[in-house]
Design a protein around this nucleic acid. Sequence first.
RNA 1: GGUCCCUUCGUCUAGUGGCCUAGGACACAGCCCUUUCAAGGCUGCGGCACGGGUUCGACUCCCGUAGGGACUACCA
Length: 491
Amino acid sequence: MSQVRVRFAPSPTGFLHIGGARTALFNWLFARNKKGIFVLRIEDTDQERSTKESEDVILRAMKWLGMDWDEGPETGGDYGPYRQSERLNIYKEYAQRLLGEGKAYRCFCTQEELDLQRQEAKEKGEFQGYTGKCRDLTEDQIKEYEAQGRKSVLRLRINEDEEIVINDLCRGMINFSSNEFGDFVLVKSDGFPSYNFAVVVDDMLMKISHVIIGDDHITNTPRQVMLYKAFNTKVPEFAHIPMILGNDGSRLSKRHGATSVEEYRDQGYMKDATVNYLSLLGWSPKNDQEIIEVDETIKRFSLEDVSRSPAVFDNTKLKWMNGQYIRNCEMDTLITEVSPFIDKEKYEIENKEWLAKALKIAREHMTLLTDINEQLTYFFDKTLDKTLNEEILKIFEKESAFIVVDEYIKRLEDLEADKFYYEPLRDNLKVIMNEHNIKGKDLFMPLRVALTYSTSGPGVYPMLQVLGKEHSIDRMKEFVQKVRKSNSLEA
RNA sequence: GGUCCCUUCGUCUAGUGGCCUAGGACACAGCCCUUUCAAGGCUGCGGCACGGGUUCGACUCCCGUAGGGACUACCA
């Protein structure tokens, strides 16, 4: 069996869309599963809308998600160049070939003429495609048009009554009749190739074996098949994968919120979670597994298991999944991924060891990487809100609250700094518990509040461990002082 | 309008004629765990679009109907 070669071919007219990313992902997964080649090709034949910035953004997003390509811009390869704007001479050559063989012809119709034609056809309820007005122009007519300075396009001469069968890898046989298609444009009047023409020339020359693409292209495929036939060349396999929809069931777009991959990255989604979620949109490992790491996805991926129906993008589930990754990934991974989100103005992270300690607590309370700053407030005096609200004061209406904190401070002062880990911290508190018969909420709440000025948040022991001896004691002392002062003012 | 595609809980999905009283996950509700908030565990809520066939037997096969979507460009 010949080598599997697939491609992802975005047009650089904006960011990498979530839907595009999923298409890229399925191509990439398929290539890696088959030990094939993943080609990245930039389809920048739309002179108006294509930009280099957009290309950069797309490549960056691809890299972020970990989809590496074997051939493409920056990487090169044997079938380059990989930007369509750099392949113009190639398209020209192949256009010439079709023209020479009479399989394509020049059309001098103006936009206005075509619009009018289409309008009339629409009113009569007739076929709206190009009807072939310029199909059989004589040499003289062509010369005359040229003399008038009219621009021309190149159109494919489509055979009548031809059956076009696509054997789709995801959905089986799809039949079309050539009569449903007008002679479509291959080369635009600006000399640039049209989408379908460039795609076919490139896929053919780049020896693409499988075209995996969104099913919104399903009606483009028969056109491409006709072109392959015109070139007398082998037609690749096709797999049309379902689209991704917004929560209202329509095509995913800006009004559904974030749709660009980098937006998700910036919002604090981890790349592995994003890839995991995307891979489960239209594909299933066929067991009850939800969290599935990419290596295993590669192993199990197959086009036959791709569903045929569109999937609604569900942010809530992605969030849940992101939380799973934050809580369960390697600490080193978490440190790497979360670091860019830490507000450096507010928080000076001493070192990696300290951050790891803090993250051990913080990760339990995070859904997005951006949640880190909210979690970090507990550990820094600069940002901690030290307001004594009613809830806090209420806890210290009980005398026992003061006993707990005061006694614990005393005991901690006698505890060596390197003993600030779970067992010693617990044992010291136990003594207080037993001596004063204070337990449960009455025991822990005062301490938590003294350490964090909050009735919710990290557990007491982890908090002490992260703050360390000196800082813990200072904080509690300061707190007790403030409460006493507040109480005396009231009295 | 035409052509094509799609249709299992609100959402993502498992299901390839009997294993289905339709399984899992997110969300939601309740309970448990617990020093708080989370996390975690358990339970519940909730679905085969509809109508005809085929068959001893249909979520599964066929045909209609309805609904949704895509395309119908010198945009990709």
